[in-house]
Design a protein around this nucleic acid. Structure first.
Length: 560
RNA sequence: UGGCCCAUGGUGUAACGGUAGCACAGCAGAUUUUGGUUCUGUUAGUUAGGGUUCGAAUCCUUGUGGGCCAACCA
């Protein structure tokens, strides 16, 4: 009966899918329930995207459900701003939670379960200081020693815990601990904290609570309440699993099971929320959505598509081995997606004027057709104005070209894409010797589509009619860090790339681009993929370079 | 060095005791009015030793290497 739920193809499964298929096959579960449980203390990043794609993807694949559950058990770190951004990021990625829930929804239930544990003599209130408790926990090689509060009677603990809840004690005055095993090799079992006192305002429960549950006391039970069948988390929670199981067993509640996979690491970036927060707060980037940030909002603003990120998550796979993925793979996924969808447009980042000396008159304009996307003929064609004065890219001209350079040079010929072949007859320089203008002649019979010139030129470059080009600001990004693993340094900020952002405010674009909307995606022919930034205004659009095109010539130059 | 997790080309990931495959990256070529795309070919790998077996990446064992764990964080 689960035949439709399980994959029939011979496509290989990751280890979690194998577990799920076995659970479905054996009848342990008839359907699955997963969850994505972020703490709302920062913006989501590409590592979370992997987890989102995994949890929601699993639910989709096996006709199950996936909740979004905010793990909001620490009011001093959590904010509504983060709650909002998380849901919008999840939706933007293309997933809709079955339910949007909060750990704080369960504070009362959690409290009652703590009372139950105390009654059973399995939890006690400890007035020792954090330092004392730390010492009493022992070390991995030596067992811990019991606190003098460990044998307090359940009745007394009940009263004490009640007072904790009522706010009778100041912050940090005491904690509730589970009574488990002070000699356990797994340190998490040495009487872990269940509750701490915090007279703090919670973004949802307000001032109702003076005590807040710790992660370990909340997570498994929240999973259990939601009847999560497969609670998927990252490797560092492996030692917590014993506790997770212990609480569920002692409480006798729905047995959710925890499974751990290796978190995503990307080279040339940092992924910890703490470090990302630092970059934001100390002004190294413009905000959580700075296009250089590995946050989902940053990637979105940079021009990444949900499809490309989902494809990326699929390609990196799911396993238990620590990994560092090459950002090149992320970029590949974007190019692969955009190549099929992005409309091509002409833009000249660093203009060099070209005057076609044998072109009829200054005011003469010819309209030439060019494809919107050669990969997708259905997108049709558009017309580009051609005239006597043009702009080309400075990079497309060299006075003394190296071998194999087949763009424009003195006496050389090149094709202006979808237009004519031109020949450079003269280069005009300023007082410093810099080339400021090119004089060229065009070959009238070489017009694209009706070329009878018999000329063969290797180079094809993009161009813009000077009179029709519109000004634009273009922002070019490079990786934020110069080191593959910045976090491995004593100060990760030392390897920040000083050239990670280059603003070109004198770029020119074809007029079709002046009506662009924020988020529009384009390929600027021969330059890369760009998207319209939120800073755009009606005077001047702003474009972010999402990713360059692969550049075989740049590679060739590097070799020389 | 107490416990736990992990180890396959440069990077990821498959192979479930029976031909080490796929993707990205790299290299070479073809096509191309984007030095893009597409296509073709190709380089490169089982952490080490021992054991079980007709047969081991896979099972056992001992090393080695990496990671995690002793927050009133999650």
């Amino acid at each position: 009966m689960n035949a439709e739920n399980t994959s029939s193809s011979n496509e290989s499964l990751n280890f979690i899918e194998e577990i799920i298929e076995e659970d479905l096959r054996s009848g342990r579960h008839s359907s699955i329930q997963t969850r994505f449980p972020p703490e709302p203390n920062g913006y989501l990043h590409i590592g979370h995207a992997k987890s989102i794609c995994l949890n929601f993807g699993l639910a989709q694949k096996y006709n199950g459900k996936c909740n979004l559950r905010y793990d909001d058990t620490n009011p001093t770190k959590e904010e509504q701003e983060y709650v909002d951004s998380i849901l919008s990021d999840v939706r933007w990625l293309g997933f809709e939670p079955d339910q949007v829930l909060y750990a704080s929804d369960y504070f009362q239930q959690l409290y009652e379960w703590a009372v139950q544990l105390i009654r059973a003599g399995k939890a006690y209130v400890d007035f020792s200081t954090p330092e004392e408790i730390g010492v009493m926990k022992g070390t991995p090689t030596t067992p811990g020693t019991p606190s003098k509060f460990r044998e307090t009677s359940p009745e007394e603990n009940l009263a004490l815990f009640e007072r904790m809840k009522n706010g009778d004690f100041p912050d940090g005055h005491c904690v509730l601990r589970a009574k488990i095993d002070l000699a356990a090799p797994n340190m998490h079992l040495r009487d872990p904290y269940l509750y701490r006192i915090k007279h703090a305002h919670h973004h949802r429960t307000g001032d109702k609570w003076n005590i807040y549950p710790m992660y370990d006391w909340a997570h498994g039970q929240c999973d259990s309440i939601e009847r999560i069948t497969h609670s998927v988390c990252t490797l560092e929670f492996i030692p917590h699993r014993a506790l997770y199981d212990w609480f569920i067993e002692k409480l006798g509640i729905f047995p959710s099971k925890q499974y751990e996979f290796a978190r995503l690491n990307l080279n040339y970036t940092v992924m910890s929320k703490r470090k990302l927060l630092q970059l934001v707060q100390e002004g190294y980037v413009s905000g959580w959505d700075d296009p250089r940030m590995p946050t989902i909002s940053g990637l979105r603003r940079r021009g990444f598509t949900p499809e490309s990120i989902r494809e990326f998550a699929k390609r990196v796979g799911v396993a238990k081995r620590e990994n560092i993925i090459d950002v090149g793979l992320l970029e590949f996924c974007l190019r692969e997606d955009l190549n099929k969808r992005a409309l091509r447009r002409f833009a000249v980042l660093r203009p060099l004027k070209v005057v076609i000396t044998n072109y009829p008159e200054t005011n003469e304009v010819e309209w030439l057709e060019t494809e919107n996307n050669p990969e997708d003929p259905e997108t049709g064609k558009r017309s580009l104005p051609f005239s006597r004065e043009l702009y080309i890219e400075q990079d497309d001209f060299m006075e003394n070209p190296p071998p194999k350079y087949f763009r424009l040079s003195p006496g050389g010929m090149v094709r202006l894409k979808s237009a004519y072949i031109i020949k450079c007859t003269e280069c005009v320089k300023d007082d410093n010797g810099a080339v400021v203008e090119l004089r060229c002649t065009y070959v009238p019979e070489s017009r694209s589509g009706q070329d009878t010139s018999e000329l063969k030129v290797k180079g094809v470059i993009h161009w813009l009619s000077a009179a029709h080009a519109k000004p634009a600001e273009v922002r070019l990004y490079e990786r934020l860090f110069q080191l593959e693993d910045p976090a491995a340094e004593d100060d990760f900020k030392k390897s920040l790339n000083p050239n990670s952002l280059e603003v070109i405010d004198t770029a020119l674009v074809e007029s079709a681009l002046s009506e662009t909307l924020v988020g529009d995606l384009f390929q600027f022919t021969r330059l890369g993929y760009f998207c319209t930034d939120t800073d755009s205004n009606t005077e001047k659009p702003v474009f972010n370079r999402s990713v360059t095109l692969k550049d075989a010539w740049a590679k060739e130059v590097k070799k020389q």
